Simulated assay, not measured.
Amino acid sequence: MTIWRTMRNFSSMNITASILLFLAAVSAAIIANSSVAPVYQAFLSHELHLRIGSFNLLSHGGENLRMIEFINDGLMTIFFLLVGLEIKRELLVGELSSFRKAALPFIAACGGMLVPIIIYMLICPPGSVGGQGL
């Protein structure tokens, strides 16, 4: 009974998804750099099939999707959709609903896009081939 109550309390916290995402990322990094990396790579290169009659739902251009492509194309699309919906909710009714509260995160986001571009342009002047400057 105590275990169920603890699990219910943990899952009701707002930070649960962040903790699980962080643990998954750390686990993937550890596995990818361990002795079981070939098994992990084989798992990621495994082809996926979801057939309805002769139609394969998990194919692109007539070729079956591999697990890594499904993660990149399918799951990441859902992830960024949910992030976008969360940002929209915060802008409409949450912590960022006023211009004053939203200004700093907006400026930080713009800086997060512009600063790497500026650094790249300083290191790799126009005319350098393939980003090979200096």
Score class of each variant (00 low, 15 high):
12 S>E: 13
94 G>F: 06
48 L>M: 07
113 M>S: 02
113 M>T: 06
79 F>A: 04
95 E>V: 01
25 A>N: 05
127 G>A: 05
50 L>F: 07
116 P>T: 03
103 A>I: 11
45 S>L: 04
81 L>V: 06
114 L>Y: 11
65 L>G: 01
34 S>R: 06
24 A>W: 02
132 Q>C: 04
82 L>H: 12
101 K>R: 12
43 F>S: 04
73 D>Y: 13
31 I>T: 07
2 T>S: 09
77 T>A: 07
40 Y>N: 02
101 K>N: 14
104 L>H: 00
17 A>R: 07
118 I>D: 02
115 V>G: 00
63 E>I: 00
120 Y>C: 00
130 G>C: 05
125 P>K: 06
40 Y>V: 00
106 F>V: 15
67 M>C: 09
63 E>C: 00
111 G>R: 07
9 N>F: 15
86 E>R: 12
82 L>Q: 08
53 G>D: 01
13 M>W: 10
13 M>N: 07
13 M>T: 08
7 M>W: 10
31 I>S: 02
129 V>L: 14
20 L>R: 02
89 R>L: 14
36 V>P: 04
13 M>V: 06
5 R>Y: 13
75 L>C: 05
68 I>L: 13
77 T>G: 09
83 V>G: 00
72 N>P: 00
87 I>V: 14
55 F>E: 05
31 I>K: 01
70 F>N: 02
95 E>A: 15
119 I>W: 01
49 H>M: 02
29 A>V: 05
87 I>F: 08
35 S>K: 13
2 T>P: 03
121 M>Y: 05
99 F>N: 11
105 P>S: 03
122 L>N: 08
95 E>F: 03
40 Y>A: 10
93 V>S: 05
95 E>H: 08
56 N>Q: 06
53 G>N: 01
101 K>Q: 13
17 A>V: 12
88 K>I: 10
37 A>T: 09
57 L>N: 00
24 A>G: 12
98 S>D: 11
47 E>S: 12
43 F>T: 00
71 I>L: 14
2 T>C: 01
9 N>Y: 15
86 E>G: 08
4 W>I: 02
69 E>Q: 09
46 H>K: 10
38 P>I: 03
110 C>Y: 12
80 F>G: 03
28 A>M: 10
32 A>L: 09
22 F>Q: 01
71 I>S: 12
113 M>L: 12
18 S>D: 06
34 S>A: 11
49 H>I: 10
110 C>E: 05
85 L>H: 04
100 R>T: 14
70 F>R: 01
104 L>C: 05
116 P>H: 06
132 Q>A: 06
118 I>A: 07
108 A>T: 14
25 A>M: 10
67 M>I: 03
91 L>K: 03
120 Y>H: 09
129 V>G: 01
51 R>K: 06
117 I>N: 02
128 S>E: 04
